Amino acid sequence: MVSASHSESVERASHLLSALAVLSASAAGAILLSAGPRADVFFTGWVLVAVGLALAGGIGAWTNRTPLVWVAALLLTGLSVVGMWSIGLFLAPAALLLLGSAVLSQRVGPREEVRAAILADPPSPSESAAKATCGVGSAAVGAWLVYVSAVEGGLFEACATETLACTLENTHWDAVGVTVAGLLAVSLGGWLLWKQVYTARVLASSASTR
């Protein structure tokens, strides 16, 4: 069993890494926006998204919301890999720091109030299985909607210059709406699955300490 002092040390380390990730992403964003084509709305948008992901991960680490840290870390890592020939190299340090924070946050374990609530009213196996099935179904449907609307259909028409006005004028708003709905469905499915894993972890930990 992990001692309280060790858990606190791990939690502080997670907080530190997440704070460094936010600072690193912010510095990278400042460099990229000062040197990059700010008239290009997509370039500016992705840079701001990266900073936002680092900030979301930092909030998750400081509030011990491990799923939020993992989601932000993985998305930021994916953005770094996809954009490795442009913005990716600038964002890589923040992504690595946030991944480290996520790993340490995972080791800290569930929040005490959440743990107490689960142990006070544990779900039945059939209830957990039903929620997990709903989670898989929601994520699958959401992924299909995103693929059909964003990948096959496309969200934007090409612009000679990627300005905000041109982008708004050439946006397929129906496809954007379906894509947003799909992303929400994926998020809901992932949340349901994570809750079942989270609950099972708490129950297993409680059983092992009896």
Rank of each mutant, 00 (worst) to 15 (best):
L75C: 11
A56L: 11
S105G: 07
A30V: 15
A73V: 05
L32A: 05
S101I: 07
A61L: 13
S124K: 07
R107W: 11
L32I: 07
P67S: 01
L53T: 06
S86D: 04
G60L: 07
W85I: 11
R115K: 11
G88M: 06
A30N: 10
V41G: 03
S124E: 10
A116D: 01
N64R: 15
G135D: 00
A61M: 07
A28E: 05
G83A: 09
R65G: 01
P37D: 13
G88H: 00
L76K: 09
G83N: 04
F43H: 09
G109Y: 00
A102G: 07
K131P: 01
F43V: 08
A132E: 13
A95Q: 03
A120C: 03
V49W: 14
L32C: 07
M84H: 15
L76Y: 03
R38A: 10
A73F: 08
A95P: 04
L53M: 06
G36Y: 11
G29N: 06
L79C: 00
A27N: 10
L32D: 06
A102C: 05
A95K: 12
G60H: 02
A117G: 00
V69D: 00
G57H: 03
I59G: 02
T44S: 13
A30K: 10
A54H: 04
V136C: 05
V108G: 05
V71P: 04
A73Y: 08
G109W: 00
A129P: 06
L32F: 13
K131A: 13
A117Q: 01
G58H: 03
A56W: 07
A30M: 14
L74S: 03
G45F: 15
G60Y: 01
S80E: 07
S124R: 11
R111H: 01
A27G: 13
A39H: 14
A95I: 03
V103R: 12
T77D: 09
A132I: 05
S26H: 10
K131Q: 15
V41N: 02
F90K: 07
A50N: 09
L79I: 02
L75K: 09
D40G: 06
P123R: 04
V47Q: 05
A130Q: 14
V47H: 10
G57K: 04
V41Y: 08
T133F: 14
A94P: 05
A120D: 12
V108L: 01
A61S: 11
W70R: 11
L104D: 10
A72T: 11
L79W: 02
A61V: 08
A25E: 09
S80A: 15
V82M: 05
A50I: 07
